[in-house]
């Protein structure tokens, strides 16, 4: 069991948990993730690591309610526990001094972009960050991103905060203004990472994206997380999750992530209808009417 030291909503449906996990806290590097499971019959889901504090032996993760598991997870409060947390998984981001880097965070993906931006800054890069969200409420980690960036640009889809538009609009402007960009890192929804990659491909700017395929063990055993990179199968859990955005077949990723949509929707619907009461301490035992973090994102099962 992994104790939740602190839990707070960052935005509707997006919650940050600080979890006691000393071994993971010591090892975590930017770009890595954890897999967690919240009760005995639960599934294993990959979740972004936002930060870690080796001194306190704690990691923080950011979770967006999307399906049954993430909704239940986001109902957990300070002092409760998570059954299994394993990690840090995946290869860390390749951090060195590239020169000028643009770090793009879309939605909850900003939580994973943040430690990478911070590390790039520490490595001596000039860091321009672009954060995009659907609306004002969903802009997260603005203060944190600003602290590690030479410049922070924000867009919202509906224009309710900062500039109306998409992260690619800001990236386009940077390129058009003649900004020399040595590296782009994009973490967020698949459509966003794809759009960024298409834009930078034309400009010949090296672009790293962090992929979020379906995953079970996350340790290089099941092969469920296979993605098409340059026409070949690679595994996000051991070869990734970061890949050269210009080599990723995003349409295969979208297609494979939709494999269980029916089951996921059924799971969510049955869960919302019943809310059964299993063992004490199990998040499913919560009565209805309590805080659920009921805002779910549009794409099922997508933690970005």
């Amino acid at each position: 069991m992994f104790k939740i030291i602190h839990a707070e909503f960052l935005a509707p449906g997006i919650k940050r948990f600080v979890i006691e996990a000393p071994r993971i806290a010591r090892k975590q590097k930017p770009g890595q993730f954890v897999i967690l499971r919240i009760y005995e019959e639960g599934e294993r889901i990959p979740v972004t690591i936002e930060n870690s504090d080796p001194e306190k032996g704690a990691i923080s993760i950011v979770v967006q309610s999307a399906g049954k598991t993430t909704t239940l997870l986001n109902s957990l409060e300070t002092g409760e526990s998570i059954l299994d947390v394993v990690g840090p998984l995946g290869k860390p981001s390749e951090i060195r001094n590239y020169g000028t880097t643009v770090v793009v965070g879309g939605g909850v993906g900003t939580a994973m972009a943040y430690p990478t931006a911070a590390a790039l800054k520490r490595a001596g890069n000039r860091v321009i960050s672009i954060v995009g969200a659907r609306n004002k409420e969903l802009v997260i980690l603005e203060k944190e991103m600003r602290a590690v960036s030479d410049a922070l640009l924000i867009t919202t889809d509906d224009g309710s905060y900062a500039d109306k538009g998409f992260v690619t609009d800001k990236l386009r402007q940077l390129i058009d203004n003649g900004t020399r960009i040595d590296l782009v890192v994009a973490v967020g929804p698949i459509v966003m990472m794809k759009a960024v990659s298409e834009l930078t491909r034309k400009e010949n700017i090296y672009t790293v994206v962090s992929l979020n395929p379906i995953m079970i063990d996350g340790t290089g055993m099941c092969g469920g997380c296979r993605v098409m990179i340059d026409g070949k199968s690679e595994f996000a859990c051991v070869d990734g999750p970061e890949f050269d955005g210009h080599k990723v077949d995003f349409s295969v990723l979208v297609q494979r992530n939709a494999m269980y949509r029916e089951a996921e929707q059924r799971s969510m619907a049955e869960f919302q209808a019943s809310r059964v009461r299993p063992a004490d301490g199990d998040p499913r035992s919560r009565k209805s009417g309590e805080t659920w973090g009921n805002h779910t994102c549009a794409a099922q099962g997508e933690q970005r």
């Binding site: 019959e41 639960g42 599934e43 294993r44 049954k68 598991t69 079970i216 494999m259 269980y260 089951a263 996921e264 059924r266 799971s267 049955e270």
Partner: peptide, 10 residues
């Protein structure tokens, strides 16, 4: 044992 267990399969 889906949906008693959460992990889906086809």
């Amino acid at each position: 044992k889906f949906p008693v267990y959460d992990e889906p399969m086809l």
